[in-house]
Design a binder for these strands. Structure first.
Lengths: 246, 246
DNA sequence: TCAATAGTGTCTGTCAGACACTATGTT
DNA sequence: AACATAGTGTCTGACAGACACTATTGA
């Protein structure tokens, strides 16, 4: 072969000549409901793993998706109707055995959404439903999705210890108690009330928007808050709970 | 089409029928030398971006690599001769524009190795060399590798604030001053001596193995250490330096 | 008045920052 | 002795944990 310019090389390039892995994007969508952490799974209609429950996900649409985050957003929108949630890349898993069709790579994203806005929409999506994480124990998930769920769950827990991730699972406005409950559920352990309030309030992350009793609540009305602009990327220099980040 | 079993489906499956992105693995290999942080780049021999400097990386060998970490390890071994270093997945970047050949995805790994053991080996690798990170400013890197380098650099910095990552760039045994210098170079800022020593020693991460003057050193001989078993995954509950983790 | 929830006062312990100090080697 | 580097003593401030306490609502 003679020396080529890059243009000549590209003109002659035939991607299909090179064997390469399957590539997909999967999304672990979490929410809080009835006091438990839930994840959205879809029931597969096709081989492989027909009828098994799986994370929403699929292949990149080469003509429609600008990047892999767009693929993840598209999958999320299709299943939940939610458009601009917290969406974050977790990890990429690729090996020869995870998909019976051959060498396969998936990039796992995790999304957090408040429960209610999606509920009505969800009714019509017959092949999708929320599962409490505990319910998954006896459920056979497709592919290696059980491990993917665990990866996302672990990330969620870790980041809850030093960020304000849990803000994203709440409907606004919310009380500090509701926020604390969200932290506790994502963290999987209880927090001391005073410490929690001190930490959040001192960090100047919230805007008070009034006082009220959140739907169905009892007792003294609480101050209600919305996140202050830019607060979502706040990082604490000290970690919540004893220790044990990833 | 009639209803199939999964076996029939798999037998009839032709992966090449589905358009999908290119997939590669790239590795940002860091070390410390002459008091600066360096990264290993290779000069491309082929299109696209011939002669440009790039991160070591390439395609998955579907028959030889068990998973994507194996691909990363293989690339690292080929360029440095180092076998079992710290190797950690950083992030996956995929979009329509990063590779002129089309939609392309790469999973970025980062590796840390001590300088010396690789030096002799490196002499013979004519297409690879260490670059101080500052030198990269005026260098045109292939693809989006400049951004990938920045991603890896940022991860390195963040994790240095709450782990003992810098252990992996030192030859053993090392003094606390050397360890502190490693932390400072990866962190990009200076640390207070007493705080540093207290933090490291109280965490019980090191085994003292004697006293000596590290090669070429002056002044009072220092206690020398090696990492205690399992110390590598230690996590501090409080972050180093003012704040500013990712 | 009681149950239920919101919110506070305050002590303690841990640990990073600052910085002045002492210790031990070489030339 | 002068230097260079290793290593310490000790005060301070930030902040999480613990826990008892007070406040405000509805039934």
């Amino acid at each position: 072969m003679t020396i080529q310019t890059e243009q000549e090389y590209l003109a002659a390039y035939r991607p299909e000549h090179y064997p390469r892995p399957l590539f997909s994007v999967d999304v672990a969508i979490f929410t809080l409901h009835d006091g438990v952490l839930k994840i959205l799974l879809v029931q597969r209609a096709e081989h492989p793993f027909v009828n098994h429950w799986a994370l929403p996900g699929g292949y990149v649409d080469l003509s429609a998706d600008a990047d892999i985050a767009a693929t993840a957003r598209r999958k999320l929108l299709a299943k939940t109707g939610v458009n601009a949630p917290l969406l974050e890349q977790v990890e990429t898993v690729g090996n020869a055995t995870r998909d019976p069709r051959g060498w396969s790579v998936t990039t796992l994203y995790m999304a957090l959404i408040p429960y209610a806005p999606t509920t009505e929409f969800m009714e019509s999506v017959v092949d999708a439903r929320w599962w409490a994480l505990d319910e998954l124990e006896n459920l056979a998930l497709a592919f290696d999705h059980r491990e993917l769920v665990e990866l996302a769950r672990a990330r969620l827990k870790n980041k809850t210890a030093y960020t304000v991730l849990p803000l994203h699972v709440l409907q606004q406005p919310f009380s500090l108690s509701q926020l604390q409950q969200a932290f506790e559920l994502l963290l999987g352990s209880e927090l001391e009330k005073k410490s929690f309030r001190r930490r959040i309030l001192n960090a100047d992350l919230l805007q008070e928007v009034g006082i009220g009793i959140p739907a169905g609540g009892k007792g003294r009305p609480a101050a209600l808050y919305v996140p202050a602009p830019g607060s979502e990327q706040h990082l604490f220099v000290r970690v919540f709970g004893e220790s044990g980040v990833e």
